[in-house]
Design a protein around this nucleic acid. Structure first.
Lengths: 344, 344
DNA sequence: GTGAAAGCGCTAACAT
DNA sequence: ATGTTAGCGCTTTCAC
């Protein structure tokens, strides 16, 4: 008796079923389908006919079990698949992985270390061939040491691992940010506001470093009052208004990510302030359609995903060199919003 | 001798290894881990200790094989994971699926029927528990009849299946489009251009129908010269310029998707035409930051993904009612770009 | 409360 | 050129 809840599973024909239908053994069918041992032309035909007749589909799980291989999948843990940035990262991973005949399995951690750990555990139990992780803040990846030692490729994306040495692919956050702020300084701005995300995020910290680098390089003072903190466009909009309300307000703003830029643009528009220069990090689709068009430090999310996947695939091919950090360049796209000189 | 190419696989401890370490049988370990049969408290402790010591991870593939269950995964075939719209759809699927303890596996068809078929075959071979498909144009889904008959939940998203009756979740394309165009007509526009994608796409055809519905309801004539065709923002920009160059140009535009809207906005800005009203389909992040803010017919991509996943899960729970079509509502968000009255 | 044997669907290693 | 046997890691069945 087979259980009733899984009709699709119990109805599926097996190799033996096909063999019976074709008048041969399961092994012969296996040979035909995997093209190893020799098979007579006529047998081959009969087998293929039986396969079609029964709608046979090889069971990959059973196959993997037998040949002792890991599952032909790559696991990706990402904060949120629906986020445009991370969606693009996932797309980059998917292309690289599929080109290699592997399948992508994804889960969203929702920026939670607990969910991230649960997803990683699930993926490891599935025996994925490689693991790609955009780590949530507050996590601890020491438990992956053993897996790495056992030869499982583990690559971190967008943010470095915590308490673990492992491969890692990140944007040129600091340098990109520096270039964006330098762009504003070159237009004569001396008071530049930083509209940033929460300090727990690696990217915010790096981009703030780049901001300070640019100020330092120009001999400008760093002022804490010009640095704001907040997650999401509404927080960024409020932060922008607060900056504009300072006794000595900034004449230009640098937005630390796409949502911060959105908040800043909206706040400036609502306040009717066309005299404030703005440079954003990340290049959302409508940036060029804004008025003025938004100058940005563009990242390459698909590039990050692709590079991470390639690195994992190289490890899978036996690359045993020590853990390396790949930095994906950013690109300053001057469109107009950063060209504004300071008033006066 | 185990093969050398898969060190991670061959090193992994098995149930038997854990049993040996704890001085019990594999079966007892299995009992502890799955909590079925009775186990003595002390044995249990010893087993759990051994599990931790060896870093044991249950092999899900082997488990599934034995219990004859399908894999605890849902397969999703999507045109492009990196596309913001489809990324959001995938995010909606992922949330619903994860809440159920299932794992998402995704592949990009790149709008190609061949790739789509290959992905479907891979997923079926993996014995996914359900199949979600955004069908590429030009495909044929008759081959899925058998799978559906065998009880496999198959749900189509965003577009209906070809030559197959199956569950399907789509946006209210026609009605949304009608509402968007009616919005323009209500502002007095009588010549409205349609900036659309390629006719092979189901969504373009439906939205064009909605456009015609709105015209007909207002007693306005349908003019073929006002309807354009082209994929991507550049094509849309060219189409927009062509419409504006007509002897009797439209006073308003309706853009059939996000990229068409982007192209139209950019073209209007470049041409310095602030006098042309515009309504778009889809609600990209910066739409509200445009000048004027973009009026749109917003879709709910995550809602589409979620609804499709829920439908599949209900089927998995035994819902055997006949195939149904779920229509996810759209929402007209009036922001300004559609408020412009026709000149004169 | 625990173990031994059998078997899920498949393939490696040897027959024949 | 094909079949037999054994076994992958796990769970079911039945014995103790």
């Amino acid at each position: 008796m087979r259980r009733a809840r899984r009709p699709a599973a119990s109805t599926m024909p097996t190799l033996a079923d096909v063999g019976r239908e074709a008048g041969v053994t399961a092994k012969t069918v296996s040979r035909v389908l995997n093209g190893d041992g020799p098979v007579a032309g006529r047998t081959r035909e009969r087998v293929l006919a039986a396969v079609r007749r029964l709608g046979y589909r090889p069971n990959l799980m059973a196959r993997n079990i037998r040949i002792g291989a890991r599952d032909a999948t790559v696991g990706l843990v990402i904060p949120e698949l629906g986020d445009p940035f991370f969606g693009a990262v996932a797309g980059g991973v998917e292309h690289a992985v599929r080109a290699r005949g592997l399948t992508l399995i994804v889960g969203s951690s929702e920026e939670t270390a607990a969910r991230e750990e649960a997803l990683i555990a699930t993926f490891l139990n599935r025996r994925v061939s490689a693991l790609l992780i955009v780590p949530a803040a507050g996590g601890d990846h020491r438990h992956l040491r053993a897996e790495r030692a056992a030869g499982l490729p583990v690559v971190f994306l967008d943010r470095p691992p915590a308490r673990l040495t492992a491969d890692c692919v990140v944007s040129a956050n600091r340098e990109g940010s520096r270039a964006g702020v330098a762009h504003l300084i070159a237009r004569g701005h001396r008071r530049i506001g930083f509209v940033g995300d929460l300090p727990a995020l690696y990217t915010r910290r790096e981009r703030l470093r780049g901001y300070r680098d640019a100020l330092a390089a120009a001999g400008l003072p760093f002022e804490r009052t010009l640095v704001t903190t907040g997650h999401g466009p509404e927080a960024a909009a409020r932060a922008t208004l607060r900056l504009l309300g300072l006794r000595e307000p900034p004449t230009a703003l640098f937005a630390g990510n796409d949502l911060a830029a959105l908040g800043a643009v909206v706040a400036l528009a609502r306040a009717g302030r066309k005299d404030v220069a703005l440079v954003g990090f990340d290049d959302p689709p409508l940036a060029e359609a804004l008025d003025p068009p938004l100058t940005v430090v563009a990242q390459d999310p698909a590039g990050i995903g692709g590079a991470a996947a390639e690195l994992a695939l190289a490890r899978l091919d036996g690359d045993r060199s020590r853990a390396r950090r790949t930095v994906v360049p950013t690109r300053l796209i001057a469109r107009g919003s950063g060209e504004l000189p300071p008033p006066g």
